[in-house]
Each structure stands twice: as structure tokens, then as C-alpha cells.
């Protein structure tokens, strides 16, 4: 992990406003930003530890603990609400057996809310991991998407 951190930090050290790009890269590489990274980031970017910690905790995108093997973010904003996002959210909690901001007991899925994915004309929408956007997701489609995450061998 330290080697990963050092590579990332050495790449961004002299960039203007480098903190967010650095946090993004660390999270992309490790899945979260571990507490041990904070002093290293502070040193490399010449910032106070409190400053780094403040930014890390301010932005919802950044995690301080590892998530489940997959992250499912369901849009709960108005346009998706108008076509059944609340029902989808309730179904998801039941199907996964965990609430929002929680991880399934087997560590498969962390469930989160998101406020708009730009798919407001074709909701309800959700995002799986970093890039897999799905639209017009009803309960059946949700179950199929979850089943496909880790097909049983």
C-alpha cells in the first residue's frame, strides 16, 4: 500500500489544488482512503493533517473504510421518485438484507443513495461500481443485476 501511495503522491506533489485528485487516485487504487494515508498526504502536499482529514470527511464520495466487493448506488432524487425510486429502494433493502450505507453480511454489496445520475428521463436509475449505469430499473431487473454480480460457479 505504501508504495502505491508514494507513487501517487510523487506524481501530484506540485500540482495546483492537488488534494482532490490525490484522494481520488488513492481511492481508485485501494477502494478507500486509509487513515494511515492522511499524514503521508499532508506531508507530500504541505498541508496540515487536519486539513486533509477535513476534506476527506467533507466529501461523500470518499470512504474511510473498505466497501463491499460491489457498490450499488440507487438514485433517490425527485425525477426517479416520480417513477418509483422509493419502491425500488425498499425492494433493494429487502433483497439485499441491508439498509442504505450498509454492506450485506457476505460483503458482496454496499448499498448507497445517490442524488441524480443524469438519467432522469428513464428512471429509476442506479450505478453499480464506478461506471455501470442502469436505467428503467424495476424490482425484477434489480434482482437480475444483483444475481449477475457474482454468478455462482
Amino acid at each position: 500500500m505504501n508504495a502505491t501511495l508514494q507513487t501517487i503522491l510523487s506524481r501530484h506533489g506540485d500540482r495546483d489544488g492537488a488534494l482532490l485528485p490525490v484522494l481520488h487516485e488513492i481511492q481508485d487504487a485501494l477502494g478507500y482512503v486509509p487513515a494511515e494515508a492522511v499524514p503521508l498526504i499532508a506531508k507530500a502536499l504541505n498541508l496540515a493533517r487536519a486539513e486533509v482529514h477535513g476534506v476527506l470527511t467533507y466529501y461523500r464520495h470518499f470512504r474511510q473504510t473498505p466497501p463491499g466487493r460491489h457498490v450499488v448506488r440507487i438514485c433517490r432524487a425527485e425525477a426517479c421518485q416520480s417513477v418509483g425510486a422509493d419502491a425500488l429502494a425498499a425492494h433493494a433493502e429487502k433483497r439485499l438484507g441491508c439498509g442504505f450505507d450498509e454492506t450485506t453480511p457476505d460483503g458482496l454489496v454496499t448499498l448507497e443513495a445517490v442524488y441524480c445520475l443524469g438519467q432522469c428521463a428513464v428512471g429509476p436509475a442506479l450505478l453499480i461500481d464506478e461506471t455501470a449505469v442502469h436505467a428503467a430499473v424495476g424490482p425484477d431487473r434489480f434482482d437480475a443485476l444483483i444475481d449477475a454480480l457474482e454468478p455462482r460457479k
Binding site: 495546483d16 482532490l20 485528485p21 484522494l23 486539513e51 466529501y59 464520495h61
Partner: peptide, 25 residues
């Protein structure tokens, strides 16, 4: 290109600038 980090208020222009500078929005 700079990637934001999930704060609605960072769409407000001055919060956005704070964020670009590497601070809380």
C-alpha cells in the same frame, strides 16, 4: 478536467472554486 466528489453545493460557483483549490466546498 477535475473530478468532483459528491457534494451538491459544489455546484455553487464559489464552493466549486474552494473544491478546485483542494478544500472543503
Amino acid at each position: 478536467v477535475r473530478k468532483a466528489a459528491g457534494a451538491y453545493v459544489c455546484g455553487e460557483e464559489t464552493a466549486l472554486l474552494e473544491s478546485l483549490e483542494g478544500r472543503r466546498g
